[in-house]
């Protein structure tokens, strides 16, 4: 625990002497002073030193002040003094009257005291309750603040996590595309040229015969009417096989899109189909076609 040497060196005694401490801290210093004679002695010396300092600055008040100040002080304490005793006997007057007129009803006075005491307790309890309510309100406000801070932090974290996931997905997709593009041995490049109706249309398919993988990469395709999608077909022995529909991003040329696996094909073609694709190609909408 503490020892008096620490207390002497803490600077608290000086603060006490200079009147800088709040009541709780003052009480603490006083308790220490009563526990340790050394602390008591030091504190007394500090206080006495300041007293000497104060006294050294004594100024005899100007003439006339003695009468004015003493007169007002005595008037104030003099009027205060009689009112206090006067107030005290006042309640006794009705008491005496009651007991005089009806000696049997002697219970009200004893009842009054407990009531007063009880109301005293009630006031104290109310004050305590009020303080507690105020304290609770403060704590509650703090708690709410902390909760909302936490909610903000959590949602930030969630946002960050999902952003990270998006980035990871994009990265792996990019790596995959890069792998496809950098593996000419595995992937056969099939150029799809525009049909006479769409001479500027161009796209290509990357086809892995062994793994049956199909990727599509658009260079240029005519804009689609609403409710339509491009659909890729693999032509195997002259028969069209659905290879899936192109997303809007792929159609716009944003990157490679993996299509349905195709076991065997000699050519690829794209037609315009209702959104979601068709079971068979609408041949008169064929936009691009290319042989392997």
């Amino acid at each position: 625990m503490e020892n008096y040497q620490e207390i002497l060196e803490s600077g608290r005694l000086e603060q006490y002497a200079l009147g800088e401490l709040d009541p709780a801290a003052r009480a603490e210093v006083e308790a220490q002073a009563s526990r340790y004679p050394e602390v008591r002695e030091e504190l007394d010396a500090l206080l006495a030193g300041l007293d000497v300092y104060a006294e050294a600055h004594a100024i005899t008040p100007p003439a006339g002040m003695r009468e004015r100040v003493l007169g007002r002080v005595l008037a104030e304490i003099g009027t205060a003094a009689p009112t206090a005793p006067a107030a005290a006997p006042a309640p006794e007057v009705p008491t005496m009257r009651v007991s005089a007129s009806n000696p049997h009803v002697a219970s009200p006075p004893p009842a009054a005291a407990p009531t007063a005491r009880r109301s005293g307790w009630a006031i104290a309890a109310s004050v305590a309750l009020l303080l507690s309510l105020v304290g609770n309100a403060l704590l509650y406000t703090n708690l709410q603040q902390t909760r909302s801070d936490l909610a903000v932090a959590l949602s930030e974290q969630t946002r960050f996590a999902s952003a990270t996931q998006v980035m990871e997905r994009r990265l792996s997709s990019t790596q995959e595309q890069l792998h496809v593009l950098r593996s000419p041995d595995e992937y056969k490049l099939v150029a799809l040229a525009g049909t006479p109706a769409h001479p500027t249309a161009r796209a290509r398919v990357l086809f892995n015969k062994v793994a049956h993988r199909v990727y599509v990469d658009v260079a240029q395709l005519p804009p689609l009417p609403p409710g339509k999608q491009y659909q890729l077909w693999a032509l195997d022995q002259g028969k069209p096989v659905d290879a899936g529909v192109l997303t809007a991003a792929t159609t716009a040329g944003d990157g490679l899109q993996q299509m349905k696996d195709i076991g065997s094909a000699q050519a690829f073609a794209m037609t315009v189909e209702p959104t979601g694709g068709s079971a068979g190609p609408t041949l008169d909408t064929m936009t691009v076609i290319g042989n392997i």
Binding site: A54, E55, H57, I59, T60, P61, L70, L74, I77, A81
Partner: peptide, 19 residues
């Protein structure tokens, strides 16, 4: 004792007033 106030004044007023 209110007369003690007068004595108190005479004894301490200069020091208190100075401060």
């Amino acid at each position: 004792d209110e007369t003690a106030m007068t004595e108190f004044y005479d004894r301490y007023s200069a020091a208190l007033y100075g401060v």
